[in-house]
């Protein structure tokens, strides 16, 4: 149950508005709890019993290993043992990353089957909307050709790893806002060697108000999702039966 998994009830908000996307803010929760919440919402969305929803969350410190993560992605396993940071497998795409409070994670549970069935297009969309959100916070981040994620002057600030079931998305994108980025230096984030990681706080030289960040990213996602995906597939000339297996 949603109420039971958040320790930060002040930050817990669900806005049911007549917009294209519902916003669900879980506050700070453990990775596994958020995963269970996503899973339940995913099933309800597949059954058409829930609307397109953006889950926003901060996680307790955790290292997650996507489906393609290699064991040698961790440079110093002792560091994570010493600091008590768990390393857990995840069913998302992508490789290794790190989550902790101060990092804003967006998990859109949206049905692409009714819209545009294109995973690369969806990842492009996530990168653009996160870039715009960071720009509105005064951080001039953007996309880099032939690289995934969001970057600022050669440093990575947002990390993408998604999953799709029956064309409904889950997992999503993690944006470094105020979080401690030290643990990233004990791994090869996204499996890339020599990668440098930054945060909005490091760039701005000051803390960013997390409530402001939440509002900015929720508003940006709603707007961009409406612009990119609001038209039904039939109006885009997409044949709903075009993607058949067999």
């Amino acid at each position: 149950m949603l109420w039971a998994i958040s320790r930060n009830t002040a930050a817990l908000r669900m806005f049911f508005r007549k917009d294209t996307v519902k916003i669900c803010d879980l506050g700070i929760v453990g990775y596994e709890d958020a995963l269970h919440f996503q899973d339940r919402l995913l099933r309800r969305r597949i059954e058409k019993k829930a609307p397109d929803t953006l889950i926003m969350v901060e996680h307790d410190p955790v290292v997650t290993l996507g489906r393609l993560a290699e064991r040698n992605s961790i440079i110093d396993g002792d560091y994570f043992e010493r600091t008590g940071i768990p390393v857990v497998p995840s069913g998302r795409g992508g490789k290794i990353t790190y989550h902790s409070p101060g990092q804003l994670v967006l998990y859109p549970i949206v049905d692409l089957g009714e819209k545009k069935r294109d995973i690369a297009f969806y990842i492009d969309f996530l990168e653009k909307t996160v870039s715009r959100g960071l720009n509105r916070l005064g951080v001039p981040a953007g996309r880099v050709r032939e690289k995934r994620g969001v970057w600022i002057r050669g440093k990575k600030i947002a990390f993408i790893g998604i999953a799709v079931k029956r064309w409904v998305t889950f997992h999503g994108v993690a944006v470094n806002i105020n979080n401690d980025i030290t643990p990233f230096s004990y791994m090869h984030p996204c499996g890339e060697r020599d990668i440098r990681v930054t945060s909005a706080k490091e760039w701005a030289g000051r803390e960013i108000d997390m409530n402001t960040a939440r509002k900015v990213f929720a508003g940006q996602f709603e707007k961009d999702f409406r612009d990119e995906y609001a038209e039904p597939a039939s109006k885009r000339g997409i044949d709903d039966n075009a993607v058949k297996i067999a």
């Binding site: 393609l68 995934r148 998604i162």
Partner: peptide, 17 residues
């Protein structure tokens, strides 16, 4: 669910037809 395939940043579950 029958098979999961993974691209660079995404996993995709394919159901039994």
């Amino acid at each position: 669910d029958l098979v999961e395939v993974t691209t660079d940043k995404a996993t995709f579950d394919i159901p039994v037809p």
